[in-house]
Design a protein around this nucleic acid. Sequence first.
DNA 1: ATACTACCCTCAAAATTTTCGTTGTGACAT
DNA 2: ATGTCACAACGAAAATTTTGAGGGTAGTAT
Lengths: 231, 231
Amino acid sequence: MATEKILVIEDEEPIRELLKLTLESAGYSGVYMAANGENGLSLAQSRLPDLILLDLMLPGMDGLSVCRQLKSQEETRAIPIIMLTARSEESDVIIGLELGAVDYITKPFSRKILIARIRAQLRQFSDVEESNEIRRDGLMIRIDQHEVRLHGKLLDLTPSEFSILHMLVSYPGRVYTRNQIITRVKGDGYPVTERAIDVQILNLRRKLGDWAVNVDTVRGVGYRYKQESTE
Amino acid sequence: MATEKILVIEDEEPIRELLKLTLESAGYSGVYMAANGENGLSLAQSRLPDLILLDLMLPGMDGLSVCRQLKSQEETRAIPIIMLTARSEESDVIIGLELGAVDYITKPFSRKILIARIRAQLRQFSDVEESNEIRRDGLMIRIDQHEVRLHGKLLDLTPSEFSILHMLVSYPGRVYTRNQIITRVKGDGYPVTERAIDVQILNLRRKLGDWAVNVDTVRGVGYRYKQESTE
DNA sequence: ATACTACCCTCAAAATTTTCGTTGTGACAT
DNA sequence: ATGTCACAACGAAAATTTTGAGGGTAGTAT
């Protein structure tokens, strides 16, 4: 039985119920519900959930504002946020990701996808951070040596390729926009076309060979490391 | 009459006296003295001086540790530190700069240089920060446009050249090591030779033409923007 | 189904950055 | 003064990154 607490912020009653049932049947016992941004924020602060499902289209304070608030406060900053969004709100998705949300799901969604995405995010916390080594499906990254091995064989990556791969692989399932990648790799405000990232990804995929299947293109949004679609 | 508070941390009695007299005769009325690192730290915290002169060679807690402490605390982090050092302690100087000290003076020093360096640092606070424009001797930098004009004429700088110039010009008199430049321009841990910075500086000087006289090489240490030597 | 549109992929040229080998220069000791 | 050493300047080639254009493709509308 999963013990993680999940907060759902969603105004539409039927969807809220659907989410609640889906989550509970997936074994999550600590599910909190909020029907608007204000309640969502205060619940987030009082319950400190392990994950937040946030509808972007809310009455009153909209989802992006809620996201911004959550990210601006120390206690809630680290909580992963998955956005729920209509197909048409793609530009909001990008803004949300750049604010720090980790993923998004478009409505209507299948229960399987919903659960898979949530699991992917919660799984994070087991093996996170600050180690000098990351291993993923036969790929090994030694961070301070700037060294990548695939099935033991050393890959010859350029500095940018290394950074991008490291960024993607650090948070499986998290989508990064091209702008986030540029900011991370070249610094903020670096004057550069988004196409440059495509090319870096292209070359990276070539060097990764078969393993490149783990680098997903998220159309209209950016790139991510391995979100097995389960679709 | 200068009203800035200056804290001197220096163990040798005669030098301490010399510094006190020099500073006071230069018009600085708020001069505090400490003979060791511990006292220095506590004075720094209680008086919050506008500038600290820090001898690197101290009994007990050494100067670099004091520097590290000062930089690790919110209240004192922003106080500019000028290190006092014997000619032979060059590697300590580099460490100090990378910890965040802004300048250093080798002993023995002339009073004129001492005062000039101190003035240069304190002057900072008048015109600091967060504007989108920096002007210095006919050079104008528009930060968010990534645009540099020399006597009105637009210079064609590469992104790295721009960053380096911006970095240097932001703090007149502050010495930056090649490593600091690499970290700022390419990000931390970027695998690159220090020689690469020489070349960037070389090309920058070419594009700057006559104005390049303002870009000083500090032998054995790094580069800085215009410290009129007064020597 | 077909067309349309927006977006991604790809390639090769152009721009930038880095490396490396030499040469120049300052600081210091002889 | 001269030699020596360490470091900076410089040039040219190599490596990397970026651009820009064209072709392909997924997703949507017709």
